[in-house]
Design a protein around this nucleic acid. Sequence first.
DNA 1: TAGATTGTTAATCGATTAACAATC
DNA 2: TAGATTGTTAATCGATTAACAATC
Lengths: 225, 225
Amino acid sequence: MADTGAKMVEPIKAIPEPTLRRLPMYYQYLKRMHEEKKLKYISCTQIGNDLRVQPIQVRKDLQVANAVGKPKTGYDVEELIGIIESFLGWNNSTDAYLVGVGNLGAALLGYEGFNEYGLNIVAGFDTNEQKIGKEIGGKKVLNISKLADMINRMSIKIGILTVPASVAQEIADVMVKAGIHAIWNFSHVKIVVPPDVIVQHENLASTLGVLSKKLAMALKAKVAE
Amino acid sequence: MADTGAKMVEPIKAIPEPTLRRLPMYYQYLKRMHEEKKLKYISCTQIGNDLRVQPIQVRKDLQVANAVGKPKTGYDVEELIGIIESFLGWNNSTDAYLVGVGNLGAALLGYEGFNEYGLNIVAGFDTNEQKIGKEIGGKKVLNISKLADMINRMSIKIGILTVPASVAQEIADVMVKAGIHAIWNFSHVKIVVPPDVIVQHENLASTLGVLSKKLAMALKAKVAE
DNA sequence: TAGATTGTTAATCGATTAACAATC
DNA sequence: TAGATTGTTAATCGATTAACAATC
């Protein structure tokens, strides 16, 4: 097709979610290889071997992220890091509020590593008077009554939900009404939101389910021996 | 085939991992429905509607877990809970040690909810003298030098790895050598273990990758409007 | 009985893997 | 150049969904 000079609209090809879940793994790995080994180029074979992923799958995934490699030499590590970073939108950080400063909430609030993934948790919110006003990892814990107003005023994009199941929907509703764009839901209930709000559900019990079943089968097999 | 009277060995049909990841969701949901609504029977349609899963998929998943329903009435909620529980091996709890009592490690150690999923974290281990001897949620934090001996002596089945990437493999090696059966790996590196040891990798960055990309695309679409 | 729901078999869809061409 | 590695197109595999039969 001849270039008509008109601005081409990128065809919106769906990005496979498994790919989206693997890219962060590559990213973490590449950063380590870059910092520790000062590696300049890397091949899909090596990435695949180290991360136990089929090399061809690595190549496909990187292709999705718009990476371009050189035959015979592989991919430029530094460039690749940058490409994944900008593909996932991790090159500039997004502000988030966390609601529910319990065990898990406090851990996430205090975790410094999220900055690496473009996530900046600005503050925590809770109902517990004991916690309000305190700081965790330099992040203030505020009264939940201020949540809606502050999401709105600070144009917060991401809400992290670490509250008990019983109030998850209620808090989600407040977030949505205040204009949040995405919710990272650590509660054990499926929350209902309008279609334009992104919800990503994180449930440790799911992984634990896989682990438990595999373990149960392995132990059973051992007994049967 | 006629029943020969010989003990039938169940055919080892592979269980789809997506199913294994959804079963805990159903489990959590059913328990809520049972406790709060005192519901006696439930249909796949209702489960599917509430959890945003195709009803037919719910039925398939429950079938994998060996659940049997009654046409027209659905599944007996209490029975179903029990079936999923025993299918995942959550009816009797498995002891686990947690290594690395940082932010996340401490949160997991202090989290009471795991008992519901057949996981009993017995103790934590760390190298930090400040932490050793302390208790978190009633669980002792012990010196990591005792890890191998205690895994062995107490026949601990599951190791939870919440250590920095730099030492993850090293600790995993200790666990494996001491006879651990499964490792729940929260570190950011892929650890290498013998084929008979089960490893389940939990990486928040993966979910965050999906969330970030979806958010980036949504915001881009909004700007393009 | 009629109809809702489960159970089962078949069709579809999408992700992974394989095969091969292009290229440095 | 030869060969290793990327890039691309095709085949396979497995999970999801659809269609329909069975049953309470």
